[in-house]
């Protein structure tokens, strides 16, 4: 699993997970409402720099993690470029109709997908599940029964992957034909789900016996608070957005201000 890849702990790992989540969700919505491609390109570049130097992973890991985002970039952008509405025609070829407006709109949503993807990567690369859920319980008052259920479920992931392998071997040995995506999903999902549900029920009994479902006051093994890096985090992202916006408006790369 990804969180087992060796990495250097950076200051982003030290920030409060709940705060980081809130900051990134706010940024998500901010990116959603940027309609000026110049600003968005700046934001994407800044996030890319943070992704390269802020997450503490070796370059080859970062490269493989980043690769799928190119696919998303291309697939999101191309559909809008070829089939979007616009008035200044560049190319018309059958149903494909590339206009200046649709081209830049395509570039814009490509960059948007990139920025949103990077936000997610930065979060999941610098956040461990255990501190995240402890922080959600302590800072955002998530009910312990939800948080501990989630942590227990995350613990089951390796077991599920092992079972997935077992089912695959079993199907291969028995020569089950490997066709049809949906029937394949079913063939794997039924044994995996039924086993997981049985296991979940057993674990739930044990957890209820240990009062994980209780609603009274709890103490926590890990106390998660705030530190100086949290101030850095908020300051950095505020500065990032401000600079990206300022540069985008005053020193644009292209003359289009709004792609809608």
């Amino acid at each position: 699993m990804k969180w087992e890849v060796r990495c250097r702990e950076t200051w982003l790992h030290e920030t409060n997970p709940s705060l980081k989540l809130i900051v990134l969700v706010v940024l998500f919505f901010a990116v959603l409402f940027i309609h000026n491609p110049n600003v968005l390109i700046n934001v994407s570049l800044a996030l890319f720099v943070l992704f390269c130097f802020g997450t503490g992973y070796p370059a080859n890991v970062l490269f493989w993690l980043f690769l799928p985002f190119f696919l998303v970039f291309v697939s999101t952008a191309s559909s809008m470029m070829m089939f979007g509405e616009g008035t200044t025609t560049w190319v018309r070829w059958g149903l494909i109709h590339v206009t200046a407006e649709s081209f830049w709109r395509g570039v814009h949503i490509g960059f948007r997908a990139l920025a949103l993807g990077l936000l997610g990567l930065i979060f999941s690369l610098t956040t461990r599940p255990v501190p995240l859920f402890y922080s959600l319980m302590q800072q955002l008052k998530l009910k312990p029964k939800y948080a501990y259920s989630f942590l227990a479920a995350v613990r089951l992931l390796p077991m599920m992957l092992e079972e997935f392998q077992t089912v695959r071997y079993a199907l291969t040995v028995r020569g089950v034909p490997n066709k049809g995506v949906l029937s394949k999903v079913k063939r794997y999902a039924i044994p995996l789900l039924s086993q997981s549900i049985r296991r979940a029920q057993r674990i739930a009994v044990a957890m209820e016996a240990k009062q994980f479902s209780g609603s009274g006051q709890r103490t926590f093994y890990y106390e998660i608070g705030f530190g100086k890096y949290d101030i850095w985090l908020v300051a950095l992202f505020a500065a990032l957005m401000f600079v990206a916006y300022y540069m985008g408006v005053h020193y644009p790369y292209i003359s289009i201000r709004d792609v809608r």
Partner: peptide, 17 residues
């Protein structure tokens, strides 16, 4: 109940994959 939550989340994680 905790049992419902845990089962739901476990099912969900299978689908997460």
């Amino acid at each position: 109940k905790l049992a419902d939550i845990l089962t739901t989340i476990v099912i969900a994680i299978v689908f997460g994959i």
